[in-house]
C-alpha cells in the first residue's frame, strides 16, 4: 500500500497548479482545464484516503460523483463558451468588457 501522505502531496500540488491556472490564464478554455485539474486533485485525495476501505468504498463512490459533476460542469461551461464566443467574438477574459458593471 502506498502511504496516504504521498497521495495528499500529489493532490495538493495538482490543486495548487489548477488554482494558479484558473487565476492567471486569460483564455476561458485554459480556465476550464484548470477547473478539471482541481476536481482531479480532489478525486486523488478521496481515492488515496479510502485505500484500505474494502467494504464500503466510500471514497471511491465520492470520486464517481466528482467525475459526474466534472462532466456536467464541462458540458454547461462549453455551452456558455459557445454563446459567449458568438456574442463577444473572443475567448479572452480581458476582452469580455461587456460583463462589467459600469
Amino acid at each position: 500500500m502506498i502511504p496516504i501522505t504521498l497521495y495528499f502531496i500529489v493532490g495538493a500540488v495538482l490543486f495548487a497548479i489548477g488554482t494558479t491556472i484558473v487565476l492567471v490564464r486569460r483564455n476561458v478554455l485554459f480556465v476550464l482545464m484548470g477547473i478539471e485539474l482541481i476536481l482531479n486533485a480532489a478525486s486523488i485525495n478521496f481515492v488515496g484516503a479510502s485505500q484500505g476501505d474494502y467494504i464500503k468504498l466510500s471514497g471511491q463512490m465520492m470520486t464517481l460523483l466528482i467525475i459526474v459533476i466534472a462532466a456536467c460542469e464541462a458540458v454547461v461551461a462549453l455551452a456558455i463558451i459557445m454563446v459567449l464566443f458568438k456574442k463577444a467574438g473572443s475567448v479572452d477574459l480581458m476582452e469580455l468588457k461587456k460583463l462589467k458593471e459600469f
Binding site: Y7, E36, S43, I44, V47, S50, Q60, T63, L64, I67
Partner: peptide, 22 residues
C-alpha cells in the same frame, strides 16, 4: 494513480468519461 490505489473501476471510468467525453 487510481489503479495503483486499488480503485480499478474508477481508473476505467476516468478514462471513459474524461478522455472519451470531457
Amino acid at each position: 494513480l487510481f489503479v495503483l490505489a486499488g480503485a480499478d473501476v474508477l481508473g476505467v471510468i476516468q478514462i471513459i468519461v474524461y478522455i472519451g467525453g470531457v
